[in-house]
Simulated scan of single mutants.
Amino acid sequence: MNQERRDRLRDAALAVLAEAGGRGLTHRAVDAAAQVPAGTAKNYFPSRDALLRGVAERCLEQYRAVAAALAGAGPGPSDRAGLAALIAALLRDVAGPGRARVLAYLELQTEATRRPWLAAQLDPIAAGDFAAHRSLLAGAGLPAGPEQVRALTLALHGAVPHLLAGAPETLAAAGLDDLDGFARGLLARVCPDEGTA
C-alpha cells in the first residue's frame, strides 16, 4: 500500500468532513478532494467505517503533533499570565489554522455517539487534554487538582464549538470575542488568587 497516497486520502477526508460534515463524507467526495481517480478512496478504505477510522487516525496524529510542538517549544508557562496567553493562543489556533482539524474532530465525536469503536479511537485526544491541562496548571504554579483540571478542560471544550460557529452575539455573551480576556477570566475562576478566593 502506498502510504503517501493513503495519507493524502486521509487529509482529503479530514478536509471533506470539516467542510461538508458527516453526511458529506463519501468516497467520491474524498477522491475529488484528493484529486485522484474515482474509486481510489474505496480501494484504500473499503467502507464508510474504514474512512471514518482513517480520519480519526489522522486527527489523533495531528493532535499528537500539536502536543509535541508545544512540548518542543521549551518549558511551558511559569505563571498565570503566561498560561492565560497560551490558552488564548490555542483558542486562536482553533479558530484559525487548526479550524479544519477541530471541525473534523467534532464531526467524528458526533459519529462516535453511534459507533463505540470510534469513541474508543478518539478517547486519547480528550483524555490527553486533561493530562496536558494538569501539567500546564502545575507548571504555572497554580492549583492542579482534579477539580481545577476538570473545570479548565470542560470549559475549553465547551467554548470550542461556539468559537467555531462564530455567532457574534454568542461570542460576546461567552466572552469569546476577547480571547485574552476570556483566558484570564477562566483562570481567575478555575484558580482564584488567594486574595480573591
Results as ranks from 00 to 15, higher is better:
residue 115 R to W: 03
residue 105 Y to C: 13
residue 127 A to L: 07
residue 95 A to N: 06
residue 103 L to I: 07
residue 97 P to Y: 15
residue 110 T to I: 13
residue 100 A to S: 13
residue 140 A to T: 00
residue 107 E to Q: 15
residue 94 V to T: 15
residue 134 R to D: 04
residue 137 L to C: 00
residue 119 A to R: 04
residue 84 A to R: 00
residue 122 L to D: 01
residue 92 R to V: 10
residue 116 P to A: 06
residue 99 R to K: 14
residue 109 Q to L: 06
residue 118 L to S: 03
residue 133 H to L: 09
residue 88 A to E: 02
residue 123 D to C: 13
residue 114 R to D: 10
residue 133 H to V: 10
residue 118 L to K: 00
residue 93 D to E: 14
residue 85 A to F: 09
residue 124 P to F: 14
residue 139 G to Q: 09
residue 84 A to K: 00
residue 115 R to V: 02
residue 84 A to W: 01
residue 123 D to R: 14
residue 86 L to Q: 02
residue 127 A to I: 09
residue 115 R to T: 03
residue 103 L to N: 10
residue 89 A to W: 10
residue 96 G to W: 07
residue 102 V to Y: 00
residue 113 T to N: 08
residue 123 D to K: 15
residue 89 A to F: 13
residue 98 G to H: 15
residue 138 A to D: 15
residue 134 R to T: 11
residue 133 H to C: 03
residue 139 G to W: 10
residue 128 G to L: 06
residue 131 A to F: 04
residue 97 P to K: 15
residue 121 Q to S: 13
residue 139 G to F: 04
residue 94 V to F: 08
residue 139 G to C: 11
residue 135 S to H: 13
residue 107 E to H: 12
residue 132 A to R: 15
residue 135 S to G: 10
residue 137 L to T: 00
residue 124 P to Q: 06
residue 126 A to Y: 14
residue 102 V to N: 00
residue 111 E to H: 07
residue 102 V to S: 01
residue 117 W to A: 08
residue 90 L to K: 10
residue 95 A to V: 11
residue 92 R to T: 08
residue 107 E to I: 03
residue 100 A to F: 10
residue 99 R to M: 05
residue 102 V to A: 00
residue 117 W to C: 03
residue 128 G to K: 05
residue 100 A to H: 13
residue 138 A to I: 08
residue 120 A to V: 12
residue 95 A to P: 06
residue 90 L to S: 08
residue 101 R to Q: 09
residue 138 A to Q: 11
residue 132 A to E: 05
residue 108 L to K: 01
residue 140 A to Q: 01
residue 110 T to N: 09
residue 134 R to S: 02
residue 139 G to N: 06
residue 111 E to W: 12
residue 136 L to I: 05
residue 96 G to K: 08
residue 110 T to L: 15
residue 88 A to F: 00
residue 108 L to D: 02
residue 128 G to S: 08
residue 109 Q to C: 06
residue 91 L to V: 08
residue 129 D to P: 03
residue 136 L to M: 11
residue 124 P to T: 11
residue 139 G to E: 07
residue 114 R to L: 14
residue 85 A to K: 05
residue 125 I to A: 03
residue 120 A to D: 11
residue 132 A to N: 10
residue 121 Q to R: 15
residue 94 V to E: 04
residue 107 E to R: 10
residue 94 V to D: 05
residue 127 A to V: 11
residue 121 Q to T: 11
residue 115 R to K: 06
residue 120 A to C: 12
